[in-house]
Design a protein around this nucleic acid. Sequence first.
DNA 1: TTGAAAGCGTTACCAC
DNA 2: GTGGTAACGCTTTCAA
Lengths: 350, 350
Amino acid sequence: MASVTIKDIAQRANVSPATVSRVLNGRVWVSEEKRRAVNEWITKLGYKPNQVAQTLVGTRSFLFGLVVTDVSNPFFADIVKIVQQEAYLSGYGVVLCHTGASREMERQQIDSLLRRQVDGVIIVPSAPDAPGLVKLRKAHVPTVVVSQHHPGFDSVSVDHEAGGVMVAAHLLSAGHTSFAYFGKPDDAKLAGLRKEALSHGVSSDHIACVEVDYDSVETVDVEAAAKEFFHSATGRATTGIFALNDFVALAVINAAAECGRSTPEDLGVVGFDNTYLARIHRPALTSVVQPIPEMAHQAVELLKRRLNAAGPGSENSVAEPNAVLLHPRVVVRKSSSSRAESGELLEQGL
Amino acid sequence: MASVTIKDIAQRANVSPATVSRVLNGRVWVSEEKRRAVNEWITKLGYKPNQVAQTLVGTRSFLFGLVVTDVSNPFFADIVKIVQQEAYLSGYGVVLCHTGASREMERQQIDSLLRRQVDGVIIVPSAPDAPGLVKLRKAHVPTVVVSQHHPGFDSVSVDHEAGGVMVAAHLLSAGHTSFAYFGKPDDAKLAGLRKEALSHGVSSDHIACVEVDYDSVETVDVEAAAKEFFHSATGRATTGIFALNDFVALAVINAAAECGRSTPEDLGVVGFDNTYLARIHRPALTSVVQPIPEMAHQAVELLKRRLNAAGPGSENSVAEPNAVLLHPRVVVRKSSSSRAESGELLEQGL
DNA sequence: TTGAAAGCGTTACCAC
DNA sequence: GTGGTAACGCTTTCAA
C-alpha cells in the first residue's frame, strides 16, 4: 500500500536519505560502492520517486497546462497531440483544459492550473482576447500563446495574412476574379486575400465577406449563411471561395451544391488548416497548411527556455518575449483546380 | 514571488495554521468570529491552496490520468473533451497521455502517471490487450477502461455486437443481401452482423471480412485494400458495407467510387462512431452512434465511486468491478438509404 | 473550540 | 564524500 520511499532505500543500503537523493539526481559524486548499493535496492524494491514531494520542495512540478477551446476540432486535436508528445519527451506531463467559447470557463480552468502549480501554460485562444492571460501574467507563470500573437507573451503562430495572399494568388491563377471569404471580417486571412486580389486589379466589390462563427464542429449555421449568400446577387456572381477553416469550407461546398453550384466546376474553394477532412472529402479540398508539428515543437521549446531563464541566476530579468511566426503553405486539391493547374503541389491521385 | 500560504493567513488573522485549515475544509466547527477573520484575509491576500502540498499529506492529488491512442481520431477527441469537463466538475484535473499504437509508449506514459500520483486512470485502449493495465493493477490505482471490457476492471463500453445486429437489420431492410465488414475478423461488430444476416437466410459466403488497420487517421491503406476488394469476384457481388469506424467507411466509399461503384446507388455503407465526418461527407454517412457523453459520464462516476470506496472505511474490500454496457443506436443517412426507407431515424435534409 | 507539533517524501544546506 | 536536518505547505492527531 504505502509506496516505497527514499528512506526505505537508505535504510537497506546503509546510507542516508541524502545520499540516495544524490545518486538519484547524479549531480554530486558518490562513491562507487554506495552508488551501486543504492541502485541495487532501487531496482530491487521498485522505487519510483514521488514527483509530488519533489514539486513541494520547490523544484518543478514538471506539469504544463494546455488550454484549448475544443479538442473536437481536429486542428486543436493535432496540436494537443503533438504538444503532449513533445512535452513528454522533455519530461513534462500535460494537464488538458477546455474552455469552450466561455471566458468564464477559461478563467476557472486557469485558476485550477495555478493551484496545481503547473510550471507553464500553453494556450490556444479562440477569441482574440483571452481573459485568462492576465491571470497567468499576474501569477508569473511562463506562458506561450499558440496560433495568435499577444503583446507581452511568447507566441508561435502562422502568418495568416500571408496565407490569404497565397490563396488569392492561387485562385486568381485558377481563373477566379470574384471572391468571398467566410469568417470574421477583421481576420488577417481576409486582409491578405484582399491585398493580393486588389493588387491584381480585382475591384473591391468583388471581395465579399460572409460572417460565420469560429471553431465549432457544428456547421448548420454556416450552411444557412452560405445558402443565403449563394442566393444573393453577389453570391451568384462570385466563384472564388476562401474559408476560415476546413469545416466551414466543406459546409460551404455542401450548401453550394444544394444551390446548384458544384465544386470545382462552378466554384473554387479553399479551406484552412489542412486537416484530414480536406483529404477525405470529395471533392478533396484545397487547404492552407499550418505546420502543426513545428508549432507544437516551438511552443514547448519556448516554454522550456522560459523555465530555465526563470532559474536562480536571472531572477528578475524578464527576457523579451519571443514571437515565432511560421509560414503557411497551400496544398492544392480538386476543390479549386478545374480551371487551371497551378504550380503548387497537387496531391497525387486527387 | 512566494505565493501566499496558510501561515500568512494565520498570522494576519491571529489564529493558528490549523484553524485556517479547518475553515478551509469546513469539516470542523470554528467560531464565527475567527472564521470571518480568516475568510476576510483569504480573499484580501488572494490565497489559493497549494494542491501539491495537499496531495503530499496524503489526501488526494485530484488528478486523473486519461490515456488514449490518438486524439486526432474524433471519437477519442470527443471522449477526451467530455471526460475532462466531467472531471473538472468534480474537482479533478486531467493529465492526458497518447500511446499511439505503441505498447511500450503505453507502459511509459502510465509510469509517468503513477509517479505523478494520479488518483485514478481512465484508459481507452486500442489494442485488445492493454499492457499498461497490469501496471495499474499492481499499483492499486483505480482504473476504468472505456470502450472495451477487461476482466477485473471497471469498464464502460458499448455493445458492439448489438451494433452489428442493428446494422445488418438495417442493410437487409434496405435490400442488401451480401455483406462485407471492413475491420478485424474477431470484432464483435462482425459477429453481430453475421449473426443477424445468417438468421435471415443469408449464406455465409455472402459475408466477407476485409481486414484493415485500426484507428489511424491515415486511410491510404484502407483505400488500397478496398479497391482490391471491389475488383475481386466477391467484391463485385457485395453491396452491403459495414466499417469499423467512419474514417474507414468514407475511405471505402471513395475507393468504391474510383471502381465505378457509387453510393448509395450501388452500395449501402454504414460507419461506426457517428463522428461529424458522417454528417459532413457527401453522401452523408449512416453510422452507429456511441453515446459518448454517457460513456464519459459513467467513466468518471465509476472512478469517483472507486476513490470513495478506497477510503478509510473499507481499506481492503475490493468491490466487484462494474461493467457498464451501453446500447448503440443507428443514425440513417444517405449512404445506405437508396433502396428503402427504414423505420429508423433519418436525419433531416440529408 | 483551538493551538502545538508531527509528519507526508524530497531536496539542499551545513557540518563533519 | 557523506550524514544530519531544516525546510516546502498543508492536514491531522493530541492536548489543552
